[in-house]
Nucleic acid binder design. Structure first.
Lengths: 346, 346
DNA sequence: CCAATCTCCGAAAACGTTTTTGAATATGAC
DNA sequence: GTCATATTCAAAAACGTTTTCGGAGATTGG
């Protein structure tokens, strides 16, 4: 009775089958130099005994975890979430198909991101790394490149000489702005997402280039950087109005900013849409239901996630790369992209 | 040049400090039988060398992973997500404070849930397990109890003789129904979440008891089970109407169902609110923006998550339990809980 | 001053696999 | 019949830590 519930080990399977430990191991891991009949027997016994190899032991010896880690960064408010969740769904699906487990860890603070990466890599907790929120100069990426550790990012850097998937935010910025211009707006503002992220800069360039292409120079007073909190869009609108820079349309870097902006507009008696045209980005669920419906850009995140996962799996299987995928967003027309009305309805 | 980039190991630290491997290990793991001065020296060298213990090796030897796994189940549509994400945030925060890492895995199919648990436990991938979507008779829970593996669930079972946190859905059902009754509704329907889950049954009982308490028997024709897909609420409304069972109010098991129901109502020319009172549950972000605003119940998921995490940490630190926490939801009054109008406006 | 106790550290075993190496047997070629 | 080659398996090393055990020196009590 004093038995301390001995763990079921590979040697139990060996004894039961009458084979050696090494043969059992090779049989279970699908090596070729084991007779089919033997393999079947081993599998049967292992199944019957309910044996599973210790994760720690096998990954210590084989130096493989068959695990890919996705690091998701703060801030991730309830509103930004849908973005990542759809993405993760696709990632998980494609990785699982290749025999890899997806593991998600959270970086609560900006400062801990690098620490988490170091921990994952140096302690050998995973075989590959996935993360987003890339910056033009991203130490995380250089660090990983130096060590030759497999990783794929959602988003690019300045050099972008690594594997990545990304949504074409330049094109989103260009198309949004051009659409507003064609609707008759001469003064189009842009509330940007945080400019430390590469994609924000891409969107900004798209916005500026569209203005240039139509002979309208960009006005720094119309460009306001917003952060990923909730009322930042409102603050920006307040600033635009009190400074009297007179935009008649706004392209918002994402829908959360747009929603917040709309709220502020109402407080100023400005109707989002008729009085101030608006185009957002992301197509979060609320976008369809707010006011006239927010015109915005939708990204096929499932597809993006699938590609991300497949890219990682390929990398892990020895496919050298680099592989890069840029995907287009789809314009979802709703009610807030209205023509320049020529004045505010009182 | 032929060096194969030897991994930095604990013996490198030992050599560098002139101490033995075992002393270095004990110093780094905070054992008491090492002189303070020695500990400092070891820490300094380890830091300088950038040494980190191999996760596989240390967890093989110590049989600890310092990791807690949260299994999130399908279906998790974009609309249900916010629920889990807020929760996870709290869990992560409280676990991290106790030195545990949170790891999230996804169960894509119902059938794989148990497989994932077996894998996590038998392969020793984590020290504790967290999951939701509990059923009255839940094999997962029995299996874990048999093995004495630490776990805490979000939701209860029939017996509930384990550690759990839960939202009081009985009270939600009771309060929602009572409110509708007090608003003059005699025929209140209930669109339930899937009844295989315990919380759905709790809500149903709350609904029925409220009817009973007010002298109104419950009518099976007014109870329709909905599943966690998108148009199920609509189907249920269609059924209610075509069968002519004549409800004037509906309590929906969650907001996604409510939203779907509202959509169907509009197609039938029924105005959600004035023509058909409506109360949901969860307070998803869209709820505030749809139509008159959906009256619903909000749960403090951050708090729930924190408790979940703390409970797990306590368990892992030897606190025997059982610990159980039931938390109340808050009624968010908006536009859809209107009094019985006595007829439909044409 | 001697024995007993404490404090700090080192040697070696142990954790449970996978991988390397080589041996035994079977198969094929001449 | 003999040698070379394939096939299949076993023994043992290896993976990088933590833990157990015990020993040397310092400290305390009498």
């Amino acid at each position: 009775m004093g038995e301390p519930a001995k763990r079921l080990g590979i040697r139990d399977v060996a004894e039961q089958t009458g084979l050696s430990v090494s043969t059992v191991s090779r049989a279970l891991n699908g090596y070729s130099d084991v007779k089919l009949e033997t393999r079947r027997k081993v599998e049967a016994v292992a199944e019957q005994l309910g044996y599973r190899a210790s994760f720690a032991a096998s990954s210590l010896r084989s130096k493989q975890t068959n695990t890919v880690t996705f690091m998701v960064s703060k801030p991730w408010t309830k509103f930004v979430d849908p973005f990542f969740l759809s993405l993760l769904d696709g990632v998980e699906l494609s990785l699982q198909a290749q025999g890899y487990a997806l593991q998600i860890v959270m970086a609560r603070e900006h400062e801990t991101e690098h620490e988490i990466i170091r921990n994952s890599v140096e302690r050998g907790r995973c075989d590959g790394l996935l993360f987003g929120r890339t910056r033009p100069e991203d130490e995380r990426i250089e660090w990983l490149q130096d060590r030759g550790f497999p990783f794929v990012t959602v988003g690019r850097t300045e050099k972008s000489d690594h594997d990545w998937v990304d949504v074409d935010h330049y094109k989103i910025g260009y198309r949004a702005t051009e659409r507003l211009i064609r609707l008759g707006h001469a003064r189009v503002a842009h509330l940007t997402t945080p400019l430390r992220y590469t994609y924000s800069i891409h969107a900004l360039h798209g916005y500026r280039d569209a203005l240039d292409a139509h002979g309208i120079g960009h006005d720094p007073a119309l460009e306001i950087e917003c952060y990923l909190s909730r009322k930042t869009g409102a603050d920006a609108v307040t600033e635009l109005i009190t400074r009297g820079v007179g935009p008649t349309a706004i392209f918002c870097g994402n829908d959360v900013i747009a929603l917040s902006a709309m709220e502020a507009m109402r407080q100023f008696g400005i109707r989002p849409g008729p009085d101030m045209a608006l185009i957002g980005c992301d197509d979060i669920p609320v976008a369809a239901h707010v006011g006239l419906g927010l015109t915005t850009f939708r990204q096929d995140l499932d597809a993006l996630g699938m590609r991300l996962g497949r890219m990682m799996a390929a990398k892990l299987n020895g496919d050298a790369g680099p592989h890069q995928q840029l995907i287009d967003a789809e314009l979802i027309l709703r009610g807030t992209d209205l023509p320049q009305s020529g004045g505010r309805a009182e």
